[in-house]
Design a protein around this nucleic acid. Structure first.
Lengths: 199, 199, 199, 199
DNA sequence: TATGAATGAGATTTCATTCAT
DNA sequence: GATGAATGAAATCTCATTCAT
């Protein structure tokens, strides 16, 4: 009918974001219908189009916001003057902590790349590349400092990221291991894998 | 119309498998229609139902066949009496070699779990668990033999698999590094990450 | 929000009329949405309902205003005491001149009759009939005066109107022929077609 | 569900054509929904897409088929060696007879030009131009033969066509005048309008 | 006088699936 | 073994309209 008493654009926008996130992470973008999202939000499907012109645009918004927030959070956390070993540890801990709290965003950013149109894909890939570069820079520094013993900087970065991000495939909060413990285990594995033993 | 001269069930079955694989890997199960598959195969959509009772069954068939073949291939390759270090190296090399040749199957087996019905999911999860157990056994052995220094057998197995399977996210045949070289780099990282330095 | 500083009802009403006219003429009533009109005017769709209770009413307003203005203009132009030949020429020149300046109104009045509700249709048809009757009266007079040689007054009127109104289907201002020249050509054709030669 | 016993593609295609024609002529292309057509035909809306890939394509098909049939019919009817006066009469009679039997096609071909996409429009315009050229050739011949007295060949052709096609706006079969009588009246008006008196 | 948020209905189109042939 | 014709349901998106603000 019309505008409901008490209805509020900002609140609806947030609700759409939240429920899209959950639904797309659980079922996949292609398997989630606008009706499902609308039902979750508590509006009619047509109302969604006040906030995103297409279903695609909704997906792009989710991915873009996530990656931009990730980058910004790392920029805040990182310290340029750190030795490579400490920088790597800091990166690993940051990555685990940030991602473990946002499993849906992380999952979507990785799984739904194929659902993007070419231009959208380029945009997201660029953001992802920027984040990967942060790790590559640390590894390159470690090599130059002679603190890391690795065969190939690029391969090492990819392998490290895969390992760290992989936590999300099995971690459930409240499980056998505390988050802190998991962080420690992974940090040790990562450091050993780049050939730097800590006693 | 009736059966076309020269039409052949076995060939059609294979073609369906091949094209489903490619299409589902590229676009995702939910985004692939039976018509798309039929077009790729060169038949009418109805013909697909001679080979798989539903679209779901087609997906299950693909995933099940892949995991069973993977397990069987590993059984053939593995040697029970090997020391853990060598067994881990053998496993890593096997995993890389096998998966790098079958990116579509691997991708689907990982990505489309959520597209399965509960019963189908249980079946596939059981196969996946069997494969993971092979790696866990090796790690457990290494711990008992005192050749590995790891904090947690389960976490180590998960992290190792994530690292190895992650190759598929960036590897393109004909790239900068030969497959052999990649194998070597990853084997070294894996061995170092479980705390066992070689030479 | 509330009324914008500088917003002005009269100006908005005029803008709605102008842009509706253009859009409906170009795309057809059914193909024009209230949103399209609102965008062209530069307001939100809801604002249109301050001026017309429904989309239908907007269309009726356009058609009615046009036909009433046409009739009034002819009343002003016509002179009852003229001989039929001169009256016919005057009518033809008037019709061409008036319509050639208002292609959108003419087009809509003819094309969108079917978009009207029965009652609206009756109202518009009555206005149109009044205008046709003006021509029929002239032709009847010419027959009585023996200055026209035609087989059927009604058919002649219909044919003449079709011919004259047809100009709008091909005329573009600034074309090969001046408006004056077109008028002359058509007047000659019309007069000849009712069998009255002028030397 | 599935193919119905006795269902037949050719018959359905014809039914779609017939009912689309009627509905679009009555309500206009934009105001006719695929569901309306499907209901008239007696199938589900989806079934229409076995015959035309889009609603647009259905419209184009109707217009193109009509204009091609019109041209072909005229080619069959025309005789190149006729004097211009007789050729014009023959054209006028053909046009009236052909169009009076197909009011829906004629109406759509004229009214729905604006519903076409640019490429479709070009295609239809070209066919329409070919038909107009047939009349223009006759008029040009009459001018060269000195049997017509007209000011401008193009304008005369346009005016003549408008007059003739205009019959469809008021003619209803079974009305006051027989079709033969209407033909005669219009032929006389047309001939007089090009300045050629017949006694 | 106008906006901003929403509705409920309906538009075109696609889909998995069926089954007579 | 495969086609050709169709279904019934659902998808994305648009629309006229409403009404609190």
């Amino acid at each position: 009918m019309a505008r409901l008493a008490g209805s509020n654009g900002k609140a609806t926008a947030k609700a759409i974001h939240k429920h899209s996130l959950e639904l797309i992470a659980r079922h996949g973008f292609a398997a989630v219908s606008m009706r499902m999202i609308a039902d979750a939000v508590g509006v009619q499907p047509g109302a969604l189009y006040q906030y995103h012109p297409t279903k695609q645009a909704l997906l792009l918004d989710i991915m873009q916001k996530h990656l931009e927030a990730l980058l910004q959070a790392w920029v805040k956390e990182s310290q340029t003057e750190l030795p490579a070993i400490e920088a790597l540890e800091r990166f690993a801990r940051f990555h685990i902590r940030y991602n473990i709290k946002r499993p849906d965003e992380v999952f979507i950013a990785y799984m739904e790349l194929r659902s993007l149109e070419p231009d959208e894909f380029k945009l997201i890939e660029e953001l992802r590349r920027q984040y990967e570069d942060e790790l590559k820079k640390i590894i390159a520094k470690g090599i130059k400092e002679n603190s890391f013993k690795v065969e190939d900087a690029h391969v090492t970065a990819m392998a490290t990221l895969a390992m760290l991000t992989g936590i999300n495939t099995w971690y459930r909060s409240g499980g056998r291991l505390s988050q802190k413990k998991i962080e420690d285990i992974y940090v040790n594995m990562v450091l050993r894998s780049v050939g730097c033993e800590r006693e």
